[in-house]
């Protein structure tokens, strides 16, 4: 019998604790495949966040550090500056990155840190139980917005990719989705590029992955995917917001 696929060697044998339908499992696998393909397992470092992905350090079979809520990009900066041969990636959710850690992500991008950031946007706080996130859509129900997010009271969602793309030192910003096979293939391509950039010394590379949270949205995974396609993408369009990879490589 011929094996057509196998568990990436950059994943440990630990079983994911993620809920059925959760996008983290898919993205973890994509990242692990990329680490395998780029042959960087012996110098990759994952910076695990606070949130559902707090145990990312248990799943990736690479060096790891788990840090305070939102501070991933600062920790990644410290590692990369102290040991530049490391390939450092910060893996963060939307509460972690877009709320409590907004300063850290903006300034890491502004400094043009040569790191990779994987940003999982599922419009809600997962670990703490479905509270409103900065990315929650207007009208979307959350445990701290039981009547739905009210634009007048809670304002509008933050589009992080568009915002970071404004910064001159951010080199590569793309938003992808984990909702379908074709989109997952595109997501992997983006993630691979974000790691390849770090290897090439290009600079700050950022991939936002739209993801579902059926548990906290209170829907089935299939309904969740519908919500992602119909509602989320309207607020968070997919695409490349910035790509200075080529220009920078030539200028190197």
């Amino acid at each position: 019998m011929n094996a057509i696929t196998k568990r990436p060697s950059s994943l440990t044998q630990a079983q994911f604790h993620y809920c059925p339908g959760c996008g983290h499992s898919v993205v973890h696998r994509l990242v692990a495949e990329v680490i395998d393909e780029l042959n960087i397992k012996d110098r990759a470092v994952v910076v695990a966040p606070v949130g559902c992905a707090v145990f990312a350090d248990k799943y990736f079979d690479v060096d790891s550090i788990q840090g305070p809520h939102g501070r991933g990009p600062a920790i990644a900066t410290g590692i990369k500056r102290a040991k530049p041969e490391s390939i450092v990636f910060s893996y963060q959710g939307d509460g972690d990155l877009a709320s409590i850690g907004m300063a850290e992500i903006v300034h890491a991008a502004a400094r043009g840190e040569n790191i990779t950031v994987i940003f999982i946007n599922n419009t809600i706080y997962g670990m703490t139980g479905g509270q409103m996130a900065p990315t929650t859509l207007v009208g979307q129900v959350a445990t701290t917005a039981p009547k739905g997010r009210n634009e007048k009271l809670q304002g509008n969602p933050i589009n992080v990719s568009e915002m970071l793309a404004q910064l001159k030192s951010a080199k590569y910003i793309e938003r992808v989705s984990s909702d379908s096979a074709p989109n997952i293939i595109k997501a992997k391509k983006a993630i691979k590029k974000a790691f390849q950039n770090q290897l090439d010394g290009v600079g700050f590379s950022f991939v936002e992955v739209l993801s579902i949270c059926p548990t906290n949205w209170g829907v089935t995974p299939l309904k969740g995917l519908e919500f992602l396609r119909e509602k989320m993408i309207a607020q968070y369009p997919l695409g490349v917001f910035k790509d200075l990879t080529v220009a920078n490589k030539e200028g190197k």
Partner: peptide, 10 residues
């Protein structure tokens, strides 16, 4: 806050 976390990483 960021400085101490950079220290944590380093």
């Amino acid at each position: 806050v960021s400085a101490i976390n950079m220290l944590y990483g380093a």
